[in-house]
Structures are given as structure tokens and as C-alpha cells.
Amino acid sequence: MTSQFLWVIFPYLCIAVFIVGHIFRYRHDQFGWTAKSSEFIEKKQLMIGSLLFHIGIFPVILGHVAGLGIPKEWTRAMGVSDHMYHIGAVWGGGFFGVVTLAGMIILTSRRFTNSNVRHLSSASDLIVNTFLLVIVILGVYSSLITNTMTPGFDYRSTISIWFRSLLILQPQAEFMASVPIAFKLHILTGFLIFAMWPFTRLVHVWSVPLNYVGRSYILYRKDKRN
């Protein structure tokens, strides 16, 4: 029963909250759909932390999509051996994971230790920052430590198959039974942040300012009377 809840009910519940929550928030709280930037309070740490985080997170996301969504039979057919894939996933993913972690440490430290930034932050901001930091730590640990210190474990033969079974609505929780605890915690906290997403400022990632491309320039003219 616990296994069914953790690896079937809980993921679907988080996905449902993610979808319904976004629809509700967009329809009833569009003016709250903002990042509430604190750049005017402190800029240096924000710039460094944000740069590191974004440099690392995009390759990490692509790595997750490839690792979870592409069966190992497909990569073998493309001439990529399991060993080659493993080396790339561990060290490539580990490197970008560490870059992401460095960015998250700076951003989280800034939010908690800078009194002005913390005063501007809501409780949800602090919780989200903490959760993201924990998720990244667990991900880096799983990639660099658990992957190399657990002989015989292959996440593409366990986690990936389980994840794809969720997508086709034929969940197979039994594939998660032998997964190391670090990976399990990483997955559960990851789904939890998806459930929290619609109710936090994370929603701003969907606000791509495409209208700025064709918008006219704003002209500033000096007042000659002064």
C-alpha cells in the first residue's frame, strides 16, 4: 500500500495539482503572476547565483528528459554503449548539477541572510528556495555518489521504466522497490515542488515576454528646464 501511494497516487496527485493549480491561478490571480524581483535591493549575489543556476539547470533538465524518456535500447541502436552513457550521465550531469548547486546556495543564502531581501520574501519564497536547494543536493549526491557507489544499480532499468509507465497510465510501482533512498527522496521532493509550483512565484517561468520583441523603444529626454 505504501509503495502504491508513493509511486502511483502521489505522483498523479502532484501532477493534477500542478495543472489545476495553474489554471486556477491564471484565471483568478493574474496580477500575482510575477517574480517580484529583489534586484533593486541586492544585485551582485543575485546576478552570480542566477547565472550559475541557469547555466546548470538547462543541461540538467535535458539530461533528465533524455535519461527518463529515452529507453536504453534506443541509445544502443544509435551506437552509444551503456558504459559511455553512464560516464556521460554521471560526470556530465554531475558537473552541471554542481554548477546548479553553487547557484542555488548563493541564491538561498542571499534570501535568508540579507535582511532586506528576507523582509521582501514571503513564507512561500523561503520554502521554495529551501526545497529547490534540497532537491539539487539530493540530485548531485545521487548522480556523483549513489550512482558510483551502488554496484549493479541502473536507473534506466528501474526509475526510467517506472516513470514512462506513469506517462502511459500503466504505473508499475514495483520498479522502484530496489532504488536507493537518495534517488527516491530526489524524486519525491521533485514531485512535491511541482505540486507547490502554481501557488508560488515559480509561475513566472511561464511568462515569456515575447511582446517585448516588437514593442517600440521607450525614449527618455532630459528636462532642459533643470
Rank of each mutant, 00 (worst) to 15 (best):
A182R: 04
A66W: 00
T189F: 06
A66Y: 04
N129Q: 15
L68M: 06
A123G: 13
L210I: 08
S160C: 03
V140G: 06
G79C: 01
V65R: 00
A177S: 13
I106Q: 03
A89I: 08
S124G: 00
L166S: 10
G79A: 09
R27I: 05
V179S: 02
K222S: 13
G63P: 04
F24E: 11
S115P: 05
Y12T: 11
F24I: 12
N226Q: 13
V90E: 02
V20A: 04
H22T: 03
I181N: 10
L185H: 06
V205F: 09
H119C: 10
L107C: 08
R225L: 08
F191T: 09
L6D: 07
R221S: 12
T148G: 07
T200H: 05
T108Q: 08
T100Y: 09
V136N: 00
V128G: 01
A89W: 09
L169M: 09
Y85A: 10
I57Q: 08
Y220K: 14
Q170K: 13
S81Y: 06
A182N: 05
S115L: 13
I70W: 06
A16E: 11
A16G: 07
A89Y: 01
E42P: 13
L132G: 10
H64Y: 10
G88P: 07
T100I: 12
W197V: 08
A89G: 11
R110C: 14
K184Q: 02
I168N: 08
I15L: 02
A182I: 08
L107F: 03
V20E: 03
L13W: 02
F194S: 10
K44W: 14
Q172A: 15
D29F: 13
F18K: 03
R215A: 15
I106Y: 00
K43N: 13
I193W: 01
V179T: 02
R225T: 15
G97Y: 05
W197N: 05
E39D: 07
Y141P: 06
E39W: 12
M176P: 01
L126V: 11
T34E: 11
F58Q: 14
T148A: 11
F153T: 10
L46I: 10
R110P: 13
F24Y: 14
I105R: 07
S38N: 07
L46W: 02
E42Y: 08
D29L: 06
I181K: 07
L126P: 09
P209D: 03
G94I: 06
V17E: 00
G152H: 09
Y141I: 15
G67K: 10
P209G: 06
F5N: 03
T108C: 06
N226R: 14
G69P: 05
I48C: 07
R110S: 15
P59W: 02
V203Y: 06
